[in-house]
Amino acid sequence: MALLAIRDLVTQFKSSAGPFNAVNGVTLEVERGEMVGLVGESGCGKSLTLRSIVRVLPRGARIAGGQILYEGNDIAHLSSGNLTRFRGREISMILQDPMSALNPVYTVGAQLMETLRETRGLRGKAARQRAIELLRLVNIPDPERRLESYPHQLSGGLSQRVVIAIALCAQPKVLLADEPTTALDVTVQAQILKLLKDLQKQLQMAVLLVTHDLGLVAQTCSRVAIMYAGRVIEEGTVEQIFESPRHPYTVGLIESIPLVDGPLHTRLPAIPGSPPNMAKPIIGCAFAPRCPLASNECREGTIPLYDVAPQHRVACGKHALVSKHSVIYGVRANAAS
């Protein structure tokens, strides 16, 4: 049994034009202690999927269907009081911009210790001691002094370390990381990613990493799920996804990763068109309008998830035709640049 299993999750937004499903049937599993990447373009619903798990949703959004199974129990329909006991203790989450995730009026120590008090019942000296240990765990130098710092006195990288320390206060079994490095300097990004990887191994903690950067996933994760227009359209191990992608969109994403040893000045192939308007109901495959392989049957019904290999599932009716080289977006050979 997977530690965390999401089944057909639908998260709905109210809008003046009626409700629309920003998360539209996500199915995803995370095993104990593994690191899974959730990849997609901005607006595909990957952040909202994470927020749905801990149910800290933006205004106007609500879970409209599906299950979120944690150790086999559905937490998608828990009362918010009961859910509070899950947050932090079982599943914790960190955000994109660490600077704004910390309350500006409290010191680092105060924010760590209030979390320890509420989730672990630690007070006074014990809490302080634990707070220092946590800061040490995330490699913050001189932790005793840092406890007295206010968030605005910290750099972006330090802030994200503090945020991670706070998220780990109650030793959660799952850490949801919503683009944890996007807001940081390039040099710091690698350090934070390494820290997450180390912590995952050291604490035997599952990490669900949301990013739009497939290259980053290749370095850190064991499995990957690709999202498009509110759905997971392909899921598999890193090897399966990178070596034998079975969805045309995945192929397009992989091709758009810049090669370090590739020729300079070649224009990266881009997938033509843009993601669909989520406010309208999607019939058939959401990717069909941009897909070079699409035919009429792609524009009808709902595309199921096909098991194409152990652990490898794809939502494409033409998956048998798809390989790394069969889907051509046509730009690579073009010398127009």
Binding site: V56, T84, I94, A101, E114, T119, C169
Partner: peptide
Amino acid sequence: QLPYVEFARMKGLRGST
């Protein structure tokens, strides 16, 4: 609606806190 309030909920604080 600020992120630090969302994070305060994510880290497991009670609603009243």
